[in-house]
Computed example of a mutant assay.
Amino acid sequence: MTELTISVPPALKQWIDERVAQGLYADANDFVRALLRRDQEQAAEDDAWLKAMIDEGLASKVLDQEPEAVLDAIIAEDPDLA
């Protein structure tokens, strides 16, 4: 396993110590590894979502309306967006 040394401010060190003390993680290293794994998973989910949106956009038809008209129609459907 490769070693990595990081510096954190006291408030973050205290947060890490509290999480470890709660028994959620074996030690600070375990906590940081868990955060990194979650970040990797989230990045993969974000990539998949973006790819799906691109694919959806490419598969959709071209609208005859101007973009402003499309936005106005969307806003008219949901007044909370206005």
Rank of each mutant, 00 (worst) to 15 (best):
66 E>A: 14
66 E>K: 13
81 L>S: 05
62 V>G: 00
11 A>I: 11
72 D>E: 14
25 Y>P: 00
76 A>G: 01
56 E>F: 08
31 F>P: 00
14 Q>M: 07
7 S>T: 12
46 D>A: 14
25 Y>D: 01
66 E>P: 09
69 A>C: 04
40 Q>R: 15
46 D>T: 10
15 W>V: 05
20 V>Y: 00
38 R>Q: 14
18 E>R: 11
24 L>V: 00
55 D>F: 01
52 A>T: 06
38 R>M: 10
75 I>N: 05
9 P>A: 09
79 P>W: 03
20 V>H: 03
17 D>N: 12
13 K>N: 13
11 A>S: 10
13 K>A: 15
28 A>R: 12
56 E>L: 11
40 Q>H: 12
11 A>L: 10
45 E>K: 13
70 V>P: 02
35 L>A: 14
7 S>Y: 09
70 V>S: 02
68 E>T: 15
13 K>D: 13
47 D>W: 04
31 F>I: 03
17 D>C: 02
13 K>E: 09
14 Q>I: 07
61 K>S: 13
67 P>C: 12
72 D>C: 05
80 D>W: 02
66 E>L: 12
72 D>L: 09
78 D>H: 09
14 Q>T: 11
79 P>D: 05
80 D>E: 11
41 E>T: 14
15 W>E: 08
17 D>H: 06
44 A>N: 11
33 R>L: 09
46 D>H: 08
8 V>G: 05
4 L>F: 12
7 S>K: 15
53 M>F: 02
11 A>P: 01
19 R>M: 05
9 P>L: 08
77 E>W: 01
32 V>S: 03
12 L>S: 07
10 P>K: 11
41 E>D: 14
42 Q>W: 08
19 R>H: 06
60 S>I: 04
26 A>T: 10
4 L>E: 08
62 V>I: 15
60 S>G: 09
57 G>F: 12
36 L>Y: 10
66 E>D: 14
64 D>V: 08
44 A>T: 12
47 D>S: 10
30 D>R: 03
49 W>L: 14
45 E>F: 03
22 Q>S: 10
44 A>P: 00
41 E>C: 05
29 N>A: 11
23 G>K: 04
21 A>Q: 11
32 V>Q: 01
9 P>V: 12
21 A>T: 06
